[in-house]
Computed example of a mutant assay.
Amino acid sequence: MAKRIAVAGALLALMMGGALADALADGFSAFGRGDHAAALAQWQPLAEAGDARAQFNLGVLHDQGLGVTADRAAAVEWYRKAAEQGDARAQFNLGLIFATGDGVAQDGAEAARWYAMAAEQGDVLARFNLAILYEEGSIVPQDHAEAARLYEAAATENKFHRAMYALGNLYSQGLGVERDSSRAAELFGEANEAEMMTESSSGCTPRGTVVREECRRTTPQG
């Protein structure tokens, strides 16, 4: 009897999982054809049931005012729910929102906390933007060594050319690392080659040495 109940439970879980996946995909299809209200209708129940991908997607809809009136506070709450479940894209968006003070009070500690969570998962833009915060030291304590570590990770693991440039600048000035003109020149050369090959695997490229609003993750997860 117990075995039958266990089997039935497993089958029910599989059926529910399939239904959730279908609803998520249906919402993504609706979003793709511009029917944001239909996407919202598909994702809302999933998000309320705790699906991190749907929660991130609702954050995007509220953030961008797609299918619903733009509401940054609601976007932050949905991003936070997804981020607390380990969604790196949501963690990155929260980091950016708190770093720029866009719709919330600017909070360097919160920005760094969320960026760090995404960076630990290998998110290239989180690594890059967090490095910028530590290099500039405007809303978090300046820490060139930590900036160099993060630029190094984005440069070597993510092959991100802007991180290569930034790390090269630190080596050329001896900030956070021992001054090394040869290493700086090497990084500048690698950055030029990487830039010619691709803009960024992330689909969103920070420009210059500031955190840019346009680099928020705005593509839903299907």
Results as ranks from 00 to 15, higher is better:
Arg4Asn: 12
Val7Gly: 02
Val7Tyr: 13
Leu12Lys: 14
Gly17Asn: 13
Ala21Cys: 04
Leu24Pro: 04
Ala37Glu: 09
Ala38Gly: 02
Trp43Gly: 03
Gly50Asp: 14
Phe56Ser: 03
Phe56Ala: 09
Leu58Trp: 06
Leu58Thr: 11
Val60Asn: 03
Leu61Asn: 00
His62Trp: 01
Gly65Arg: 04
Arg72Cys: 01
Tyr79Asp: 05
Glu84Cys: 05
Gln85Ile: 12
Arg89Glu: 12
Arg89Gly: 14
Gln91Glu: 12
Asn93Asp: 08
Asn93Pro: 07
Thr100Leu: 14
Thr100Lys: 09
Gly101Ser: 11
Asp102Ile: 07
Gly103His: 06
Gly103Thr: 14
Val104Ile: 03
Val104Ala: 01
Ala105Cys: 01
Gly108Cys: 10
Ala109Glu: 14
Asn129Ile: 12
Leu133Ala: 08
Tyr134Gln: 02
Glu135Leu: 05
Gly137Gln: 08
Ser138Met: 03
Val140Pro: 00
Gln142His: 02
Gln142Ile: 10
His144Pro: 00
Ala145His: 02
Ala148Gly: 07
Arg149Gln: 04
Glu152Pro: 00
Ala154Leu: 06
Met164Cys: 07
Ala166Gly: 08
Gly168Lys: 07
Glu178Trp: 00
Ser181Met: 03
Leu187Ala: 13
Gly189Val: 05
Ser200Gly: 10
Ser200Thr: 15
Ser202Ala: 15
Arg207Ile: 15
Arg207Pro: 00
Gly208Lys: 11
Val210Trp: 04
Val210Ile: 13
Cys215Glu: 14
Gln221Ser: 09
